[in-house]
Amino acid sequence: MLSTEIIYKIILILAVFTVTLVVALYSTFAERKVAAVLQDRYGPNRAGPLGMFQPFADGVKMFTKEEFIPGNADKQLFILGPSIAMLTCLMTGAVIPWGGDLTIGDYIFKLQVTDINIGILYLLGVVSVGVYGIMIGGWASNNKYSLLGALRASSQMISYEIAMGLALIALVMMTGSLSLGEIVRQQDEGLANIVYQPLGFLIFLVCAFAETNRAPFDLPETESELVGGYHTEFSSMKLGFYLFSEYINMFISSALIATLYFGGYNFPFQHSLGIEGNALSIVQTVVFFGKIFFFIFFYMWVRWTIPRFRYDQLMKLGWKTLIPLAILNLFITGIVIGFKNGFFN
């Protein structure tokens, strides 16, 4: 049993890894297509039918570009920066439940790499370590624009982590569990968490945009002010790692929003469809990916709709709007839970 379990886990880890990379690869393509639709253009349409092979062409281009390390850069840290960025964004997929259980023979396989009972803390830990990739890379470039980009990224991520953590605490208070598997199971029995935590969801969404450095909060890489921001000096696949990690982060945070607030792999009336067991699990996984793709599309939609914030506006929103709102949300959640448990009687 133990060896079957380990082999299955290895296969699942490889599958999650591959799916993450493929989705991120095609997100780059989707971003250009969505941008094209929103701006009334064609977008990339040369490589393959409808431009479907464009991401591979981009990948080959990235790999074959000259690998250049600036003379005054700190070589070890210059290589370490993109590596940390890539490592941390791939680590988060381990705790996300991708679907129900699969039963093959006597074995029950969970479609989740590990259901640790501190899942949300693990997520917050990985997110808070993720900032080092950008900071180290930006500092090691020995370039003022890169340094400014890195400083912006780190202060932005620290500021928004607080509001994100507070929004998550309200969710944890409500569900009474830090395990993502348990949070999803509870949404199967009751309603999706968005119904109970609309304000918390909004705060989490805004913070997710800021944490992934996506527009309208993409101040660490503003072309108009900072050339390329923290990755100005990077070329070839090191730049590729940074750009790619942004898309992976987008995929993972979409998966998280779906898991925490939109029922994860559950969908309404799933038990009255007449399918059960493995078939239901597969449908659930498909539905889950549908939710994820919707949020990835939402990221792109927002990018081409809302203009970039000014830096002081960003900080003001983070500290003076989102954190008080998150505390208010926490307070209201606490009072409601108190009423439900008869604390005020």
Binding site: L121, L124, G125, V127, S128, V129, V131, Y132, M135, W139, L151, S154, S155, I158, E161
Partner: peptide, 14 residues
């Protein structure tokens, strides 16, 4: 990890 590695040391490096 969250407090020391994720928050305090980020400020140090900052």
């Amino acid at each position: 990890v969250i407090v020391y590695a994720g928050a305090i040391m980020v400020l140090f490096i900052y």
